[in-house]
Design a protein around this nucleic acid. Structure first.
Lengths: 187, 187
DNA sequence: CAAAAAATTTTACAAATGATAAAAAGCGAA
DNA sequence: TTCGCTTTTTATCATTTGTAAAATTTTTTG
């Protein structure tokens, strides 16, 4: 997915503002298994995914728990770092070789301070992430694991071919064994 | 909590921008049990809580499920309406008599378009909501119901005196009976 | 292709949670 | 206070989910 298309996903931008953003964006490739964001740090870079897939996870007693998948067109930010300037709680690693657009958080910050269109674009971007997170939270409270699995199957079927089931299970808030049971039941 | 203090909670504002916001804000009182936001509509008003407590909930098979509590200093918005302009999925009702500051979403929208400080303030506001939502999502995935209850107890102990346990249970993603068991176990 | 490694599924048992019903406790109004 | 109502707790049993270990399948590597 090309950068113009990605930037327009969140909110329309006047050509001048879009060019100002693009002037700060560079490209980078990373292999599978590369860690883009590490917890406990204030992250200084953010990414847009041109191609590939990544996961965000945090450490827990029972190993790491995946709470987000990002794919083509998505933004990769340590939200905590980005919003509050405090060390984040998440790791983000590539699950495939990835082509990314990258940008310094400080560059974006200074564009926010000087360009009102970019400030509003950033507001919309965060807003859309918020809706997605809220909808996931609600689905965790409302729905059974089986329903959540079926939802995932219909909304992003490709995820199941591209990501190991252990990460899918943890994303659904269940164990690998439970997921296996659900899959057997449906078959 | 006074309006200046609430507005400053999210991001510092120059005096002029703060006054521009305050010029669009009025006060209102609502009794306990009043519905501020109804699902299926595009909400045109947003609120800041001066005093009192509210809950957001959605309809499910097994009755309504509470997914957010707001108290003094918090913002009450239908996020879906506000961010995407589409009908929201949540109801918000007062659980106590509430003193609120209220504002038309369109007024805020036009301030976003004309005042860069307010646009960035709005960005920070949404960002902080996102962090809170993300942390709750993670705690739903990582933690047992008992841990979530203990977390709630230590972070907002007053909630338990002000809100019926049926709403607390649904907020924690468990039944009233399970919550009762957890409470008995701890005692 | 065969061996090794990794991922996934299956099994058996234990623990946690849900559903339901009924009892107990708390609370406001007459 | 007592009555009537709501909220909370307790008890029982059924179901779901977790843990641990083994079996199976798939993928990787030589």
């Amino acid at each position: 997915m090309e950068i113009d298309e990605i930037l327009e996903r969140f909110h329309p931008l006047p050509a001048g503002s879009r060019e100002a953003l693009k002037a700060r964006i560079s490209e980078a490739e990373y292999p599978k298994g590369h860690t883009l964001i590490r917890s406990g740090r204030v992250e200084k870079t953010l990414y847009f995914i041109r191609s590939g897939i990544v996961r965000a996870y945090s450490d827990a007693d029972r190993g790491d728990v995946t709470f987000w998948f990002g794919k083509e067109g998505d933004v990769v930010i340590s939200m905590k770092s980005y919003v509050s300037g405090q060390p984040g709680y998440e790791h983000v690693e590539t699950l495939e070789a990835c082509d990314l657009y990258q940008m310094k958080a400080l560059d974006l910050e200074s564009l926010f301070a000087s360009d009102i269109h970019i400030a509003n674009w950033g507001r919309k971007l965060i807003g859309q992430e918020l809706i997605k997170t809220e909808e996931r939270l609600i689905s965790m409270q409302f729905k059974t694991a089986q329903q959540r699995y079926l939802d995932l199957l219909s909304s992003t079927p490709d995820l199941l071919h591209r990501v190991p089931l252990c990460h899918i299970a943890s994303y659904l808030g269940i164990t690998q064994v439970s997921l296996s049971r659900i899959r057997a039941e449906i078959r």
